[in-house]
Amino acid sequence: MTTRTAAPVDAAALAEVDAAAFGTHAWSAAAVESELAAHGRIVLVADGTPLKGWASVAVSGDAADLTRLGVRPQARNAEVARSLLEDVAVRAREAGARRILLEVAEDNHPALRLYEDTGFVRIATRRRYYPGGVDALVMERAL
Rank of each mutant, 00 (worst) to 15 (best):
M1H: 11
R4G: 12
R4D: 09
P8E: 12
V9M: 11
A11L: 14
A13E: 09
E16M: 09
D18W: 01
A19R: 15
A21H: 03
T24I: 08
H25K: 12
A29M: 08
A31N: 07
A31L: 14
V32I: 15
V32Q: 00
S34N: 05
A37Y: 07
A38W: 05
H39R: 14
G40R: 05
L44Q: 01
L44V: 02
V45W: 00
A46N: 01
A46C: 07
G48R: 01
G48V: 04
G48H: 03
T49R: 13
T49M: 12
K52H: 14
V57F: 03
V59P: 00
S60V: 15
S60E: 12
D62K: 10
A63C: 11
L66C: 06
T67R: 07
G70Y: 01
V71F: 00
R76C: 14
N77E: 15
A78Y: 05
E79W: 02
V80N: 05
L84K: 00
E86T: 11
E86A: 14
A95V: 09
G96T: 10
R98E: 15
L101W: 12
L101Q: 10
L112R: 09
L114C: 10
L114W: 03
E116S: 11
G119Y: 05
F120N: 00
F120W: 07
F120H: 03
R122N: 08
R122F: 03
I123W: 02
I123K: 03
P131I: 06
V134W: 08
V138W: 06
